[in-house]
Every structure is written in C-alpha cells, then in structure tokens.
Write a protein that binds this DNA or RNA. Structure first.
Lengths: 111, 111
DNA sequence: CAAATATACCTAAGATTCTTATACATAAAA
DNA sequence: TTTTATGTATAAGAATCTTAGGTATATTTG
C-alpha cells in the first residue's frame, strides 16, 4: 500500500469487497485489480497484502485453495459465511467513514 | 481515534483542514469539533492528538501560542505558510482517496 | 540466446500511527 | 464531596504498513 497514509487501515476492507464481487481471487490478482480500478494510483505492496490475507484466513473470514496454473502456484481465496457478514459490516463502516470525511472537506457546520 | 481502523492515517489531514477553516484552535477544541461534526462517531484520543500536533509543529506546518483562559492553559495552533501548502496537498490526496474508495464500493468495472 | 520483466508466493526488520493507561491541574456540576 | 468537564502531556504496547529481501517459473525483449 503506497502513496498517501490515508490508505492505512483500508486494506482489509478492500480485500473483502473485491472477494465479494469476484467470488474468488488470488493475491497477485488483487494487486493488479486494485491498480486497475485506481488508475495506477494505489499499489498494494506484497509485504502488506500477504500478511493481511493470512490474518483474514486465520480469523475465519477467508478460506484458501491452492491451484497450479501454467506450472505456477496460485492461492485462491474466497469469503466464508462469517466473511460475508464481516464484509457487510466493513462496508457500512467505510460508507460512514466516507460520509464523515466528506463532511470535513465540504463543511456544513457553522462558525 | 477510535472506532473503525479506517481513520488510521487521516488524523493529520483532519487537524490541518480544521485549522484551515477555523484559523486557530487548541487541542481539546479539536477533539470536541470532530465529535460534533461526526455526530459522536469519531472520538480522537488524546494519546493520538497531542503527539500529532507536536509532530506537525516540528515539521513546520503549525505554530503554537499558549494562552491562559479561566485560569487554565490553552495551546492555540495555527497553520504556517508551509502548513497551508501542505493542507492543500493533503486535501487533494483525501479527495482522491475518497474517489478511489467509492469506486471500490460502487464498482464501475466489468467482470 | 541472454537478460529483463511479469507472474506468483512468502517473511522479517523497522517505521509510523494509533490505543490504552497514566499523570497533573482547575472549574463546574451532581 | 465526589464526579464530570476542561486542558495538556507522555509512555508502553498493538496494529498496520514499507522496505528489503528470498524463491521459482514464464514470457518478452534486445
């Protein structure tokens, strides 16, 4: 996760949301997808991604399956049932967060 | 900074933006203002706020002035010239970040 | 063909940011 | 009189990320 410090804390939510959309993804694919949808602005580093995936799996939100494609290993992840619930919660938090930060940038309060 | 992990990394931007709007604020005032504009959802902890203020001051983005009000000390902060430039940059980053996260939540890409 | 780049996974040391807990002090409210 | 509100500050530890490395195969480029 490079660039602005703002992305700190959002990686898990990004992973969960992408898996909810795509159903099944592997790590490298996630980094490429994020780069694509942010027009290259957000580059997830492997040092952040893989530990995050392992932690989400250990917490029971993801389950993994290894496959060999073109003689190279891919570790596919998908949401568990708990992971789907967690994703919904994280997305609510994200929308709330965005609302709050937008109120900050475009203040409606009085002085 | 409590609640969702998403706020990690956004504290500096919040401080800078509030100071840009209000011109002059002290620490405790910032915590109350943030609570107000987020309807109590975001509570900035003192352990996060004061080190952040000191760091922004050390970096030359803020300057401080101590005043005694009702027999209690207040440390007022305001933006330096560099701080104003920095604020503009941070706000651009924030808007970009929000755009990217919204694209994530409301995807426009194809599968 | 050799070298660089892309694909694909992983970990460890250190930096940064935050939480939790604590300390000190005055004013107002219960 | 004790709690809550106001006001600043630091220190230990947790969490998240960057940086830098390691391993391996496939493809592209010079």
């Amino acid at each position: 996760m490079k660039n602005s410090q703002l992305y700190k804390g959002s990686l898990n939510t990004i992973i969960l949301k992408l898996l909810e959309e795509k159903g099944r993804m592997y790590g490298y694919e996630i980094t490429q997808k994020v780069k694509e949808i942010t027009n290259g602005e957000l580059a997830i580093t492997e040092g952040a991604l893989y530990p995050a995936l392992h932690k989400l799996e250990a917490e029971g939100f993801l389950e993994a399956e290894v496959e060999k494609v073109d003689n190279r290993l891919r570790k596919y992840y998908k949401l568990t049932e708990n992971g789907q619930l967690e994703t919904a919660n994280r997305l609510s938090e994200l929308e709330e967060f965005i609302r709050n930060m937008q109120t900050l940038v475009h203040p409606k309060w009085s002085y």
